[in-house]
């Protein structure tokens, strides 16, 4: 039972990797990573918890599974938000985009991405 769970988990991780390689857009790759590899790693950890005997190992694996399940969706949310907001990354949205209007309200033009150094910054300083 344990190795079977780990096999399904490894298969889902491979599915996630294929999605990450094939999808055309950064946000779509985020979808593939979050949905498949979260479940994959939780299944693999549960398979290990079923197989191993020592109670110390079992509790460590259960704790790792719970933490993976809690942290991976949050990390995906943070990354999706930053990817969408970063001006230099192409977020290709086909149909409607209701977040863009929201951001147009409070978007201030911050200037070019690479600022030239302010004049006089390298003037000799005592130190």
């Amino acid at each position: 039972m344990g190795p079977l769970l780990a096999l399904v988990g490894a298969g889902l991780t491979l599915l996630s990797a294929v999605g990450v390689v094939r999808f055309p857009d950064a946000l779509a790759r985020m979808h593939a990573l979050t949905k498949a590899s979260t479940v994959g790693v939780v299944l693999a950890l549960l398979g290990g918890a079923v197989t191993l005997d020592h109670p110390n190992d079992v509790t460590t694996l259960l704790l790792a599974a719970a933490l993976q399940l809690l942290t991976l969706p949050v990390a995906a949310n943070l990354m999706s938000r930053s990817t969408y907001m970063a001006r230099g990354i192409a977020s290709h949205v086909d149909e409607i985009d209701e977040l863009a209007e929201r951001h147009a309200l409070d978007d201030v033009d911050p200037g070019p991405l690479d600022e030239p150094p302010p004049p006089g910054a390298e003037a000799g300083r005592p130190g």
């Binding site: 490894a10 991780t13 990450v20 990573l33 590899s37 790693v41 950890l45 990817t83 970063a86």
Partner: peptide, 18 residues
């Protein structure tokens, strides 16, 4: 982009745990 590289790295961490 940097996001794609972070996605790859996160995937490698999951692969490491498995």
């Amino acid at each position: 982009s940097l996001t794609d590289r972070v996605i790859g790295l996160d995937g490698l961490l999951v692969v490491g745990v498995t």
